[in-house]
């Protein structure tokens, strides 16, 4: 087992008056195949932390290593390549392309990371099958329900076969049945070696994780895993 995520004294302060310390002095190590739930009140810095973990944002203090690579020492281009190759995202807003079909949306996640053109469609179809959307391949996002859109976003993230999957409220729009389907999928993906970090408000989701981390006012704290 090797560490996928290593945070050491990471802080993220947004300049302004007053400056906002969204993440403060965070230390965290997550092993390969780990499953971490991040909980905490609104505005506590969860999304900010997730952006740092996904190399979308850089810490203003401390160091972050992703699969042993010091992200702080990378150029913008290398950071981009790294997250394209290693990280999958499911955002709070799904960011689907409104004029593309469901399968094309999933294929977009494979454009930049050297996936050969001819395997993209098949892989995307498989990912959509895993989230239970095989019957919606040629729909456009406008024709989908909120929960279906969220599942398209999940499919897009896993189709690229990342080593770290970061989810911001991935079950926010799902009903009980589809939520447990997605949670089953997460368990399945973990056995393939995927590392999972999930922001959630839902007790049901955080209970399935092996670790629960609570964020309060930018501070990270390990919470009791019940």
């Amino acid at each position: 087992m090797s560490a996928v995520v290593e945070l050491a004294g990471v802080g993220r302060t947004f300049a302004g008056s007053p400056p906002v310390e969204a993440v403060r002095d965070a230390d965290l190590v997550v092993e390969e195949g780990g499953y971490v739930a991040i909980v905490g009140p609104s505005g506590s810095g969860k999304s900010t932390l997730l952006h740092i973990l996904g190399c979308l944002d850089t810490p203003t203090s401390g160091s972050y290593r992703l699969r042993g690579i010091d992200v702080g020492g990378l150029s913008d281009g290398d950071r981009t390549s790294l997250r394209g190759a290693e990280v999958g995202f499911v955002f709070q807003a799904f960011h689907l392309l409104p004029y593309r079909s469901v399968i094309e949306n999933v294929m977009t996640g494979l454009v930049y990371n050297r996936t050969p053109r001819r395997v993209r469609r098949e892989r995307s179809r498989q990912a959509l099958e895993r989230v239970g959307l095989s019957h919606r391949l040629d729909f456009t996002p406008r024709q989908l329900s909120g929960g279906e859109r969220q599942r398209v976003a999940v499919a897009r993230a896993i189709a690229a076969q990342p080593s770290l999957l970061l989810c911001d409220e991935p079950t926010g729009n799902l009903d009980t049945r589809t939520t447990s389907a997605i949670l089953d999928l997460f368990d399945e993906l973990r056995t393939d070696g995927l590392t999972l970090m999930v922001i959630t408000h839902e007790e049901r989701v955080s209970q399935r994780a092996e670790r629960r981390i609570e964020m309060i006012d930018g501070f990270l704290g390990e919470a009791e895993s019940s």
Binding site: L56, T80, G84, H95, G109, R156, A160
Partner: peptide, 16 residues
């Protein structure tokens, strides 16, 4: 803007 953000997240560089 959202699409641009998503493409950047999935590995698109500025020049892409």
């Amino acid at each position: 803007v959202g699409e641009i953000g998503l493409r950047r997240a999935t590995g698109a560089r500025r020049r892409h």
